[in-house]
Nucleic acid binder design. Structure first.
Lengths: 146, 146
DNA sequence: TATTGTTATACTCTATAACTATA
DNA sequence: TATAGTTATAGAGTATAACAATA
C-alpha cells in the first residue's frame, strides 16, 4: 500500500501521466525559449542544428509539414541565428546552418533548462536512472509513426 | 549493473526523453481526436468536463490565457458537444457543461487512446507500474507553475 | 474596485495545394 | 517524372489590452 503493490495501472493512466509531464516539460522549454526571444518551435529547430540540416530533414525531425519549415527558418534567420546554404551536391536542397550567435543562444537555453529542472531532484539518482532506462526503451515504439 | 550500468544520466537527458515521449503521446492524442473531428486542445478541454467547469478554471487547467477559452468553447459548442450555463450563484461566471453527445464522444476518444497505446506493451507490467509510480511523484513538482 | 467573460488584434504553428527550380 | 523548397491560403492556438456586466 504505502510502498507496496502498485496494482497494475491502466495504460490510460500511464499515458495521461506521460502527457501531463511531457506537456509541463514542453511549457518549461517554451518559457525558457521565450526569455531568449524564441518560440518553442524555433528553439527546437535551432537545437537540431549541431550540424547542417536540409530543410526537408528538419521537417521530419520536427514532425511537421515541410511548408512550415520555411517560416520557422525565416524567423530564425531574421534573428541572425541561422543561415541557409545551397547544397553543393544537389542545388535543390538548402542546408540550414546555425550561426555563431545561434549556437551561443542555444547553449544558453540548454544551460538554463538544465538548471530549471529542479523537479527531477524529487527523485533520487537511482530513480532517475530507472526512469531514464524505461523512457529510453519506450521512445522508439512511441515514435514509430513517420 | 545487471545489463549496462545506467551511469547517472544527466537531468538534460532525462528531460529530453520526457519531452520526446510526451510529445509523441500528445501527437497520438491529436491524431485520435482528429478522427473524431476535434483538435487536441478541444479534446483536452472536453476531457475536463466530467463535471461543469467555469471558463476561468478551464483556462487554468489547460494552462492558457482565459481569452483563449472563449474560442475553444465556441467551437465545441458549434459541434454540439458542450453548452454554457450561467452560474446561479454568481451571474458573471459561466459553467461549461458537456452535452450527452460530448460525453459520448469523449468516451470514444478515450477508448481509442487506450487501444492505441501498444507502445506501452514494450514494457512489462511490472515496469509499467514502476514508470507510473515515478511519473506520479514527478508530476506535482513539474506542474508547480500556476 | 475587483473579477468574469468577451472582443479585437497580432503572431505563430499547422496542413493542403499549387508553383519553381532543379534533378 | 519526381523531388526540394516556396508561396498562398485558411484554421487554430497563443498572449495582450480594452471592454461590459456583475460582484
Amino acid at each position: 500500500m504505502s510502498a507496496t503493490t502498485p496494482h497494475s495501472p491502466t495504460k490510460l493512466q500511464i499515458m495521461e501521466l506521460l502527457s501531463a509531464v511531457g506537456i509541463a516539460q514542453w511549457q518549461d522549454f517554451a518559457a525558457v525559449a521565450a526569455r531568449h526571444g524564441l518560440t518553442a518551435m524555433q528553439a527546437k529547430a535551432l537545437s537540431q542544428l549541431g550540424t547542417p540540416v536540409p530543410m526537408r530533414r528538419l521537417a521530419e525531425r520536427l514532425v511537421c509539414d515541410a511548408s512550415n519549415i520555411t517560416g520557422i527558418v525565416d524567423r530564425l534567420e531574421a534573428h541572425g541565428l541561422v543561415r541557409r546554404e545551397v547544397s553543393p551536391s544537389d542545388r535543390r536542397v538548402k542546408n540550414v546552418v546555425a550561426t555563431e550567435e545561434g549556437t551561443a543562444t542555444m547553449r544558453r537555453v540548454r544551460a538554463e533548462m538544465e538548471s530549471t529542472q529542479a523537479a527531477l531532484d524529487t527523485l533520487g539518482e537511482d530513480e532517475q536512472a530507472v526512469l531514464h532506462g524505461l523512457l529510453e526503451r519506450l521512445r522508439p515504439a512511441m515514435e514509430h509513426r513517420t
